[in-house]
Design a protein around this nucleic acid. Structure first.
Length: 260
DNA sequence: ATGCCGGGCGAAGCCCGA
């Protein structure tokens, strides 16, 4: 089972690229982020025509997450628990059951958090606390679980071109690393690092300053796996060629192959 | 590079992203 995550930076602007990539990459499940549109405006029909079931949690202008799956959903949950006043569309979780057993998959868009001296960073940290609590709960099911998405976390200096330049940034701060390590300490595995120790492999390149051409990127899109998923992990890779397409997203797809 | 792109909104120029 191939499971991918991709921050598309507007599904309306990116639908051509998304359809081309779906046809080429043939993921069984695709977690999308930053749709920047409401549910009713999501281009559901053209995606369903490729054989996908669609679960969307959209929002006008900002955020928005979706899961596309060739296997129908058994269950769909929107919103991360822990703060009923949080209106931002950053979390959708589904359960699918391919041949053998259920697999729980979430598409997450973790807050950026900049600038750090504002409520944006406290929102990021509290959102991470909620994710830790929810992950702890989900891990109790002891089933294959994949928390995939744009984490807006650069895990280590090996995951950025110029660590010095990112010092103090919300994606690269001790408090952010601490929360990310808490997730890992619960038993969640960074799928890419479980497969590939190569430093300086990236999933995002800024539109500005020729960042893509110079390979000045960061690795911030992650698939975090429960032990039951990690045991079945076959491969993980980054579809970085998609960044060179016409009108690209600034992020590229990351995917895993699970033996389920 | 606290904004060089790029997208949304909405019809110019500001807000936002990472």
């Amino acid at each position: 089972m191939k499971i991918a995550t991709w921050n598309v930076n507007s599904i309306k602007a990116r639908i051509g690229n998304v359809l081309d990539w779906l046809k080429q990459a043939q993921p069984d499940v695709a977690c999308l982020q930053e749709l920047k549109t409401v549910d009713d405006a999501f281009p559901r029909d053209v995606i369903e025509e490729l054989g996908y079931n669609v679960a969307v949690h959209g929002q006008k202008t900002y955020n928005g997450v979706a899961v596309l799956s060739k296997v129908p959903f058994d269950d769909v949950i929107i919103r991360l628990p822990g703060d009923g006043s949080d209106e931002q569309a950053r979390y959708i979780e589904v359960v699918v059951t391919p041949a053998k057993q259920p697999v729980r998959i979430a598409s997450i868009y973790l807050p950026n958090g900049n600038p750090v001296e504002t409520e944006k960073y406290t929102y990021k940290l509290s959102w991470m606390d909620r994710l830790i609590d929810h992950a702890q709960h989900l891990l109790e099911y002891e089933e294959p679980l994949v928390l995939a998405g744009d984490y807006n976390v650069i895990p280590t200096p090996d995951d950025v071109h110029n660590p010095e330049g990112w010092s103090g940034d919300a994606l690269f701060r001790p408090e952010t690393w601490h929360k990310f390590r808490q997730l890992q300490s619960l038993g969640l595995t960074d799928a890419f690092r479980a497969c590939d120790a190569t430093p300086h492999r990236y999933t995002f390149w800024d539109y500005q300053g020729g960042a893509w051409q110079k390979d000045h990127g960061i690795r911030i899109d992650h698939l975090m796996l429960s032990p039951q998923a990690a045991d079945r992990l076959k491969t993980c890779d980054i579809d970085q060629h998609v960044r060179a397409w016409e009108r690209p997203s600034d992020h590229v797809p990351v995917w895993i192959e699970l033996d389920v």
